[in-house]
Design a protein around this nucleic acid. Structure first.
Lengths: 135, 135
DNA sequence: AGTGCTGGTCTCTTTTTGAGACCACCAGAG
DNA sequence: CTCTGGTGGTCTCAAAAAGAGACCAGCACT
């Protein structure tokens, strides 16, 4: 995958941004990465990548998220352009959340991490257990 | 760990694991994903993917991390098997941190997200600005 | 003897998160 | 008509996590 000389100049530029001058705090890539990270964001992205969901459905889908964090995380995802929020004027008004094109695009990349986790979560578990045992 | 054995091969099965039965809290994939997420973890992984670094070097490289969080995050990454910690008995003892094979493997997947961020951070910025402006 | 570098830990304060009450609205049951 | 439940939230308060900075031992150079 990486070897030595990477054909991707962007990779080098990212590292440069980190190591050069220490101006990492302003790195736009970092902002996006940290916007992708976060306890609930990835989880909600995974759910919405499957299909659009309504607020209550998401709440039931991710039982251990508080209503407050669900509201806030969806708001943040919407703000970053990953999620579209649509209100339906039904009898009790319903709100549907769905991925935007940008969201689907981002999820395409993030999906690699999901697949890796799927294949390697056992190794991580073992490492964790070994570390906890051996100190 | 849970009733359903999650042996996911495809994207769809992952989503099923989320939506089926709502037992997402025990999903091992979720654990790993959230272990990858986090404000500093990704940043330190990026730095260490470039080359091994010592504690103080990392501190200078990521100026806005507190010493406390650097210690803790490195410890966590080591615990999960992504990072190797080696103490050199030099005059003032130095500690070098480097990626393990598992860490490099994980970073290979995560790298896709970095590349996406590199290409699309402008779109995210615009979305954010538009959202803040229009409400 | 004082200063600085090594990699940390300990304490205190601020920020973030979690738990749960509360809100207005409407539908159907009794 | 009241009672209950489901719609999507907001508000408050306590707990957990993160940030800021003091402090530590050991050694080198001055």
């Amino acid at each position: 995958m990486d070897g030595k000389v990477i054909n991707l100049k962007s990779k080098m530029e990212i590292y440069k941004a980190i190591s050069d001058g220490g101006n990492i705090a302003n790195c736009p890539v970092r902002e996006v990465i940290q916007g992708v990270s976060g306890k609930w964001r990835s989880l909600l992205m995974m759910a919405l990548a499957e299909q659009p969901y309504r607020f209550g459905e998401l709440r039931r889908l991710v039982p251990d998220i508080s209503q407050r964090m669900l509201t806030q995380t969806l708001h943040d995802l919407q703000r970053d352009g990953y999620v579209h929020r649509e209100v339906f004027p039904t009898k009790p008004p319903g709100v549907e959340y769905s991925l935007t094109d940008l969201g689907r695009s981002m999820f395409g990349a993030f999906h690699q991490v999901i697949l890796w986790a799927e294949l390697n979560h056992d190794a991580v578990r073992k490492a964790r257990a070994a570390f906890d045992a051996g100190g």
